[in-house]
Amino acid sequence: MADNNSVLTVSIVTPDGKVYEREDARLVIVRTKSGQLGIMPNHVPVIASLEVDEVKVKSGSDVDEIAVNGGFVEFSNNNLTVIADSAEKQGDIDVDRAAAARDRAQKALEIARQKHDNQEILRNQVALRRAINRIHVAKH
């Protein structure tokens, strides 16, 4: 294995526990509230809020994709930690379940728009983004 200064240790955790861990990553790509961020070994320390999006972890020719539903990323000393409400590795995503969640969110969003219920509109927009993100990650 390469020395500790040329690789990243990556952990993704949720309230239910650790979802993902890798100790030999060369690049991690996340989407923060400020835009896309690529982190390589020896990057300056970072703390940022995450969007609902995928986290890509690259090591050599391997690329792992994890659907993350918001949260935070913290990086220092070549250790990157994502803390999220929920996260799923690409191979663990049930596409049929995600598609059903997308359809439910779309229907509920349309009803909320007809009723001009802004809270329900926002809630269902988030649910829709999460479902679409899971489908997107699963199909890569």
Rank of each mutant, 00 (worst) to 15 (best):
M1S: 12
A2G: 09
N4S: 15
L8F: 02
T9W: 03
V10G: 06
V10H: 07
I12D: 08
I12R: 01
V13M: 12
T14D: 04
G17S: 07
K18E: 15
V19F: 04
Y20K: 03
E21A: 13
R22Y: 06
A25Q: 02
R26F: 06
V28G: 01
I29G: 04
I29V: 12
I29K: 13
R31I: 10
R31N: 08
T32S: 07
K33S: 14
G35E: 11
G35K: 06
G38Y: 07
G38N: 07
I39C: 02
M40K: 12
M40Q: 11
P41V: 03
P41S: 07
H43W: 03
V46P: 00
A48N: 10
S49G: 15
L50K: 04
E51F: 01
V52D: 05
D53L: 05
E54P: 00
V55A: 03
V55Q: 08
V57P: 07
S59L: 07
S59R: 04
V63F: 05
V63M: 14
V63P: 06
V63A: 13
E65L: 11
I66A: 02
I66E: 08
A67C: 03
V68F: 02
V68E: 06
V68R: 01
G71L: 03
G71V: 00
F72D: 00
F72G: 01
E74H: 08
F75Q: 05
F75P: 00
S76F: 05
N77L: 10
N78Y: 09
N79H: 15
L80V: 01
T81V: 14
T81G: 05
A84F: 03
D85L: 12
S86F: 08
K89N: 15
Q90F: 09
D92Q: 06
I93K: 02
V95G: 02
D96G: 09
R97P: 05
A98E: 00
A105D: 03
A105E: 01
Q106F: 13
K107D: 15
A108C: 04
L109K: 06
E110I: 01
A112G: 02
K115I: 09
H116C: 14
H116N: 12
D117E: 10
N118M: 15
N118E: 14
Q119R: 15
I121P: 07
I121W: 04
L122H: 13
R123C: 07
R123K: 06
R123D: 14
N124G: 10
Q125T: 09
V126D: 09
A127N: 15
L128R: 00
L128D: 09
R130G: 06
A131I: 04
N133C: 11
I135V: 14
V137Q: 04
A138F: 11
H140M: 11
H140P: 06
H140V: 12
